[in-house]
Nucleic acid binder design. Sequence first.
RNA 1: GCCCCCAUCGUCUAGCGGCCUAGGACAUAGCCCUCUCAAGGCUAAGACAGGGGUUCGAGUCCCCUUGGGGGCACCA
Length: 604
Amino acid sequence: MDIQRAGFRGRHDSRTNDSAHEDRACARPIRRYRMAPRDRQPPRQGRAVRHHGNARRGPGQHQKAGRADHDRLIAGGRGCGSYLDCMTIRTRFAPSPTGYLHIGGVRTALFNWLLTRRLGGQFILRIDDTDAERNRPEALQPILEGFRWLGIAWDEGPEVGGPHAPYFQSQRKDLYVAAALRLLDEGKAYPCYATKEELDADRKAAERAKRNYVHRGRHRTTPAAECRRLYDAQPTVLRLKVPEGRTIVVDDLIAGKVEVQSDLVGDPVILRADGRALYNFATVVDDVAMKITHVIRAKEHLSNTPVQVLIYEALDYSVPRFAHVPVVNAPKSKEKLSKRKMKQFMTDDIVARLRAAHAVPAEWTDEQIKNSEDLNPATVAFYRTLGYLPAALVNYFGRLGWSLDDKTEVMPLETMIANFSLERVNNAPASFDPDKLLWMAGEYMKQLPLEDKVEGLLPFLRRAGLIGADVDANLRNKVRKVALACGERLRVFSDVYLYASFLFRDPVYDAKAFDQRINKEGMRDHLRTFAQVLASVTPFEPDAIENALKQYCEGKPVKLGDVNHALRVATTGVMIGPSVFDCLAILGKEETLRRIDAALARPG
RNA sequence: GCCCCCAUCGUCUAGCGGCCUAGGACAUAGCCCUCUCAAGGCUAAGACAGGGGUUCGAGUCCCCUUGGGGGCACCA
């Protein structure tokens, strides 16, 4: 068993006989595919060349098969043809330092990470900052912080280092130049002096003729030594010689088998005149140098992959396994998730919470907050700021495009790790659903131990100025009671603003609620007299208060609910919140009476 | 224009030819519970894009159409 199939259990295993198995164990992936057992079956009528990669397994037996694969993989080192066959699985996520962590990227990174956790490999974080303009050091921190907060730890990469450092492409230029010059000397690359204008003209001509535009440079056929001499005399861009008449096969773990004719692929530039590498080239050089076994990345890279395969081949490198994850779409949409598309989720309530949490400068207008780059709902920071539990995000994004079985939604991380496999990743885009994420957040909040909830609540209360910096035992106890009183109303920490602000500051009276509940025939009198009853309630605890109210209403032509509502509005200012009795107990007798007096003092 | 890919309730998904009268979850609606708001319980509504094949039998395999996405860079 070889590592390259590690993430792809199931179909092949069940149909492969032993000899075919051995055959494939040491072959390069690209060759291996042609020998895949499926292709040797007698073709069914009308069978197409391509077949789907999203083969499925029944939940039961294949999970065991997966473990078996894993065990053999870790134990055995037989028949190694290249590092790809021998080593443990190595995956990478390679973001550009853009200043924020995009949730689509998190999902992709998560899949990479999960697979390495299951199979005992390494997850590498590499920074693709070849684009000089976008290379701002401070733009990296939000990305690292985002991953740390989510608990997605990288085994190698920025700040942790590793045997293949540096992990910044901007610091690896020499490698790319050396590799490109090697291809030049070997006659696999050539200098191209065509100007942009010439290329554009060619492209337009091709378009007019309804042909696919395929660039083939003048020096394709120039001998290698001459090419080198030309290049040394006058450095320019280097292009890879794309072989003619080839079928390039990408055997993708998620997308299935994808074939592209090399005659449709133009000779790609691999190195600019100034020596900076292009993405396709740098990626291949780095993935090889970092011994990446599984390239798991977003689907939009699928069409780059044939070019990369050619680069691997030209460089004489083994091709890793590819898995192209479908993109994440915007909510209820077929379009890719983008910041622009997520702006609509910056509701007034969200803006209020961000203000309360002092997550934005106080002088910002609502419009400015809604346009904030860093706190857009497409970023991880947004959810962190609003008090979503990171485990809920991980669970949600793990389930977006991947499923454990036919019903499991909420699952511990260990379960996800133990069962994650690429073959159960859907080969179709999935839309992000903020409602379901919020529900998931609530599920995790329910499970959170009380003390952790208190601990999580404190910073939110502090930032909003509802409590001070010092938290003594008394205050802590109060927050504990608040957490208990809020119960399952809390789905995210910032919900505390909605349900309990008034337990930490004076009520802000909602005019409508006040009018409806207090300015009601006889209600002020009830409040006044019930306040006197409350004054003698001991202990001032929820049960005792409730009993007092029941007794008070007994035999009177007033409904308990009505007095209760008036009591709520008088003491909290609003119509929503935890049980009134809990609220009063938390406020304490003195404060409760003070608030009732204050409410009664207000003009009708 | 050319190339590649995708398609089950509004959304996330189960489904690898008979177990499907298509299952679960979020959201929605109704009822119950209830001091408000949530939560919870019960119930309802809701999908195989269309058309051809293959097969005794197709959501499942094949083809076409339609719709969607991605790419065709000296961006990543």
